[in-house]
């Protein structure tokens, strides 16, 4: 085991941890693409349970490491971050699915609007699915780690919510990759798992940004509540918009163009993520744990 550890450390030293992880994600998708070519798969396949779970878990684990590294100044306890990740996968996501199914069971003969931007699709994507998913992520973080003493700087909101979103994506991706009669292209499935994980984590991260600000604001409780609510609404709008536009991009009439969808989703998720990172810079700059420039005189 010496060699891999050594190699990892070497690679990390050479390239930086985040780059290694991003490379890992790329390699993961490339491997699936190569595997697809190697075994001559020219159509979608029904993935076995284990493979689907692995394909959902691998990008999530890599992304989780990546997000974890964002909190530079006072890294959170790994156990807590992992715990919130598990809560996201085991509580938030199933709860969201259950809630959506309960309030809006599948309607037979539903006259869905043909356009992806039809009012019914928008309402469903934004107000029902988007809001329910983000609410479940929010509830999981807000009523566990948020109140703990480990949540001690605004940036923690981003870290924990992203961990929760990553966990959420494991469930979502697993069900996207393996379900009753589901068949997926191996490469597209892997790419979409990577992208969806980033997307879910980014939306949650956006909410986490607000969550972190809200916890440490000195304004009135009402303002904090309003802040939280609009944070939630914002995340839901991002989530819903993502779903609607991805459908718009990936479908052209009756034909499906999944790569287009993945490409768009990647762009959208990266945009949100970049915005989030930009915003986080301020949080990091304001972090009470930020190492300070040595004061004149050489003492801290």
């Amino acid at each position: 085991m010496l060699l891999p550890r050594w190699s990892l450390r070497r690679a990390r030293l050479l390239l930086g941890g985040k780059l290694v992880l991003v490379l890992g994600l790329t390699v993961f998708v490339a491997m699936m693409w190569v595997l697809e070519r190697l075994i001559g798969l020219d159509g979608p396949v029904a993935l076995p349970r284990v493979l689907a779970l692995a394909m959902a878990l691998v990008p999530a684990a890599l992304w989780l490491g990546f997000f974890y590294l964002q909190d530079r100044h006072e890294p959170e306890p790994k156990g807590f971050v992992a715990g919130v990740f598990v809560l996201g996968a085991a509580i938030a996501a199933p709860l969201a699915d259950f809630a959506v199914f309960q309030v809006s069971p599948p309607l037979p003969l539903a006259q869905h609007g043909l356009s992806p931007f039809a009012l019914d699709r928008l309402v469903f994507a934004l107000l029902v699915v988007g809001l329910a998913q983000e609410l479940c992520k929010y509830v999981v973080v807000r009523y566990t780690i948020y109140s703990s003493s480990e949540f001690d700087e605004p940036m923690d909101g981003v870290v924990y919510m992203m961990a929760c979103g990553t966990g959420f994506a494991v469930w979502a991706n697993y069900h996207r990759l393996h379900g009753q009669g589901h068949e997926v292209f191996l490469s597209i499935g892997a790419a979409s798992a990577v992208v969806t994980t980033l997307a879910h984590a980014s939306f949650a991260g956006a909410l986490g940004y607000v969550l972190g600000r809200a916890k440490f604001t000195r304004r009135t409780p009402l303002v904090r509540t309003v802040l939280l609510f609009f944070g939630l609404l914002g995340a839901a709008v991002l989530n819903g918009t993502f779903a609607v536009v991805e459908l718009y991009v990936s479908s052209s009439g009756l034909a499906q163009e999944p790569w287009k969808g993945v490409g768009f989703a990647a762009g959208f998720a990266m945009l949100v993520f970049a915005g989030l990172m930009l915003a986080s810079r301020r949080l990091l700059a304001d972090s009470p744990f930020r190492p300070r420039e040595p004061q004149p005189g050489g003492s801290r």
Binding site: A99, V103, S104, D120, V123, F124, L126, L127, V128, L131, A132, L135, Y138, V139, R142, R224, T225, L228, F229, L232
Partner: peptide
């Protein structure tokens, strides 16, 4: 903060009815 959850749930249910 509980109000956030309550309003969100109400919005979800309302959205489902509208849908």
């Amino acid at each position: 903060d509980a109000a956030v959850v309550a309003i969100a749930v109400a919005l979800i249910v309302g959205g489902a009815v509208l849908h």
